[in-house]
Nucleic acid binder design. Sequence first.
DNA 1: TAATTAGTTCAACAATCATTGATCTATTAG
DNA 2: CTAATAGATCAATGATTGTTGAACTAATTA
Lengths: 136, 136
Amino acid sequence: MQLTLSTNKLSETTEDAAVIEQLARQLKVLGEPNRLRIVQLLREGVQCNCELGDALEMAPNLISHHLRILREVGLVEVERDAVDARWIYYSLNRAALKELTALFGAFFDPARIKERHPSCGPQGSVVRTDEILVVT
Amino acid sequence: MQLTLSTNKLSETTEDAAVIEQLARQLKVLGEPNRLRIVQLLREGVQCNCELGDALEMAPNLISHHLRILREVGLVEVERDAVDARWIYYSLNRAALKELTALFGAFFDPARIKERHPSCGPQGSVVRTDEILVVT
DNA sequence: TAATTAGTTCAACAATCATTGATCTATTAG
DNA sequence: CTAATAGATCAATGATTGTTGAACTAATTA
């Protein structure tokens, strides 16, 4: 899938919707502390299930579970050792991360946030009143 | 909180852990399709509850719920209309987004992924065998 | 062949969370 | 004072999902 954000209004409802859903799926996967720690370890070059489990003090089956989820959204790849095929190595998918960081940077770029142009309300002047609403 | 990733090994266990947890919390919030759609609308300048609800075909209380969650992680800010205080306007927190995009870009930068240096396994040659593991 | 090893898969449980409908608050209009 | 408006809060529900322990596969070793 080509992951770019449309700048024209035309394809906004169809194309962008798919991009947003794909982005949401990946961010949801990354929005889990243990998975984010796994990604951090993979960045450092750690790669087999046991190493990850040792570093994070997690059971192998749980590591396996999170790696599967990371794989399902294309962020992680798998290799088997050519000498001893019992060992399986995991690594980050560089192409996927390149695409993701580009999309993320574009989507959340503060510079691209447009000014308010309300289509409802009295359209009166607005006064900043942060923290008026109580948040527990 | 200062959100930068340590490059030295020293503070990796303490400082980075907090950064990763904060990052995970924000990504988790953004990893929800409807919230991501709300963010997209806020990027376009749409801001009041009713506008968001109309655009997304969601009930006001649900919009309210998601906006609260976006606020709790600092991504969204609130203003009240100075003329008619019944109207509440939501907007993206530019500073928070700037910090987030910088951290995200650094954390997931493909160029910073280190090569494998396994501390376990037979350390034999590795052959690429993608999709060996069945994923349903 | 039998025993280890590395890792996955499965079933069950508990916690989290998005959604819904109803109620409540605050503000403005009549 | 009495609606009406904009929106938040509350309680309940159903689905999703992280975690756990046990069983299972596949590969290697003795």
